[in-house]
Amino acid sequence: MNAFIGFIMGPMVWISAMIFIFGLLIKFIFIIKEVREKEQYLLSYMTVRHSLRSICAWLIPFYPRSTRLRPVYYGVSYLFHILLFVLPVFLFSHIVLMDQSLNLSWPALHDGAADILTLAVILALVFFSLRRRLEPDVRFLTSVKDHLLILMVLLPFVTGFLAYHQVFLYEWMVIAHVLSGEFLLIIIPFSRFSHMITAPLTRAYTGSEFGHVRHAKDW
């Protein structure tokens, strides 16, 4: 048992981090390679200026008309995505682990703040899940897979939250937290979570077609 815990707390963390980083990187390289082989002409319409113009416009909260039409969903989604990165990276206990293993450290979020923000992430995921059931057009598009995706993100946050508060089965919670976190990292490049890298690409392409070829805005 100790060997198993040692493995998931040690090498497995690095393995999953590598799968996450290199998985996305390889995916990116394959996309570019395939575009070059099969649809090279797409690249001739892409410009850095119009790609960035479109991506930036879509990063400004409530700037695109689409985001103003569904402000609650968009607002929750915007905060959720920021927290998804900020929380794990700036969590005190994560930084302590980094410090122990790599001698690297950076400023941490206040534990109380992190606690509230974790709750916010959990609530956002509950909101997404409810929205998938309640909003008719979204429900029509939703399959079991979409609920599974929500669950995969939910698990590390819920287990982390419970482990921090040490309400019950502390050790088991930590194990579940580490495992679900690693699973999430591993699954990202192979699931629709890879929109982490594909979304900027599709946005950049559409932004270029709209901006460079069609002289129009796409937000």
Partner: peptide, 11 residues
């Protein structure tokens, strides 16, 4: 990418 990227958000 279009097929893989769509998160079925309904926007």
């Amino acid at each position: 990418a279009y097929v893989d990227t769509c998160m079925r958000c309904g926007l």
